[in-house]
């Protein structure tokens, strides 16, 4: 995808700038690049879906949208072997502990994509007594993909954004664990 086609370049660029401020060693930098190349090109999803968005995720794997082109088709059923979790669907109170546990079971580095308005904010069910109002209170989220449900193209775009984000990570010396969005916003206030 050409650089201009991306929508939110400032965010990624700021991230890169901040990471480069400390400067990197040539060898370490090369290794970092290699590792990030591997990581960003091999992101395996966890088979996780609660409702409608999950069906669009199935469509994403099917012939028309074919996520296998990017190497994302190795959907693992065991969270230990997956890299990211596409939270496709509503998370309700009763599901929250299960969901949180699944997140904890993912092996580092792990990423979360909030897919669809239910996962982002509770969506049409926001006023319900039994729905979690967005998953970012429960787990840190890397990419938000809006829609109800998002189209498979939007999901592809979302995962590609995640892949870009992984590319600028640091393996050596950097903070490998992810910050929660809350911490991130404290250090990067939006004005």
């Amino acid at each position: 995808m050409p650089y201009e086609a991306w929508k939110d370049n400032e965010y990624i660029e700021n991230l890169v700038k901040e990471l480069q401020e400390s400067g990197t060693n040539v060898i370490v930098g090369t290794f970092d690049k290699l590792i990030n190349w591997g990581r960003s090109n091999s992101i395996w999803p966890l088979t996780f879906a609660t409702s409608c968005c999950g069906i669009e995720f199935v469509s994403l794997g099917a012939a028309r949208f074919d996520m296998a082109r990017f190497g994302w088709e190795v959907a693992r059923s065991s969270p230990r072997q997956a890299d990211f979790m596409m939270v496709a669907g509503t998370i309700v109170n009763r599901m929250v502990p299960v969901f949180r546990r699944l997140y904890d079971q993912l092996a580092e580095p792990k990423y979360v994509i909030a897919c669809g308005s239910c996962a982002i904010s509770g969506g049409p069910f926001r006023n319900s007594y039994h729905v979690a109002k967005g998953i970012e209170d429960i787990v840190p989220v890397d990419v938000f993909v809006p829609g109800c449900p998002p189209r498979p193209e939007a999901m592809i775009y979302g995962i590609m954004q995640l892949s870009r984000k992984i590319k600028v990570e640091k393996f050596f010396g950097g903070v490998n664990r992810q910050e929660s969005r809350k911490e991130f916003l404290q250090t990067h206030p939006i004005d």
Binding site: T50, S51, G89, T90, V92, R94, M95, V98, P124, F125, N127, S128, Y129, H130, V131
Partner: peptide, 22 residues
């Protein structure tokens, strides 16, 4: 109940045409 979203209760607070989208 792992995806119980309380649609019936939500409907009681919405006008008739609004309930359709559930």
């Amino acid at each position: 109940g792992y995806i119980h979203r309380g649609v019936e209760k939500l409907c009681e607070s919405l006008q008739y045409p609004q309930t359709l989208h559930f």
